[in-house]
Amino acid sequence: MTHATTTQDEPAAQGGGKKQSGIGQRRSNALSQSNTAYATRRAEIIEAAAAVFIERGFSRTTLSDVAEAVGTDRATLYYYVKSKEELLDEVVTRVVVANTEAAEQIRDSEGSAPERLRRLMTDLMLSFEKHYPFIYVYLQENLAHVKENRKGWAAEMRAVNRRYEKAIASIIAQGIEEGTVRDLDDPMIMAYGLIGMLSWTNRWFSPKLGIPASSIAYTYVEMLLSGMVASDEKSTAERT
Rank of each mutant, 00 (worst) to 15 (best):
T236Y: 08
A49F: 04
K147Q: 10
A67H: 00
I46A: 14
V81W: 07
A75H: 08
D9M: 07
G22W: 08
S170Q: 03
S206L: 07
A191K: 01
V95I: 06
A191I: 01
A154D: 07
A37P: 06
Y78M: 02
A13H: 08
A48L: 00
G17I: 11
F128M: 07
T201I: 09
R60S: 13
I211N: 01
M121N: 10
T236D: 10
M125E: 02
V70G: 03
P114Q: 01
S215Y: 09
Q14Y: 12
S231I: 12
G227H: 08
E90M: 14
Y192M: 14
A102E: 07
I168R: 12
V221D: 03
S64L: 11
G24D: 00
D232C: 04
G152K: 06
L124A: 15
R60C: 09
T6R: 13
W204D: 10
L139T: 05
S34V: 09
W204N: 03
A4P: 09
R158D: 10
S32N: 14
L184R: 07
E165T: 12
A103N: 07
R60Y: 09
D185W: 09
F205S: 03
G71W: 00
T236I: 13
I172L: 12
S206V: 04
A173R: 12
K82P: 04
P133Y: 05
T7R: 13
Q25F: 00
T62F: 09
A173C: 08
V137C: 04
A49Q: 02
V181S: 02
Y136G: 06
D73I: 00
V221I: 15
T236L: 13
R116K: 13
R56I: 08
S28M: 15
K166R: 12
K18E: 14
A13W: 06
E156Q: 11
L194A: 03
M190P: 03
I171A: 00
W200L: 11
G71I: 06
K234R: 14
A13N: 03
L31P: 04
V221C: 11
R116Q: 01
A49P: 00
T236Q: 14
A167M: 09
D232A: 15
I211T: 13
I171N: 03
I135H: 06
E101Y: 11
V91L: 14
Y164M: 14
G227Q: 09
I189W: 01
A103L: 13
R118D: 12
T2S: 05
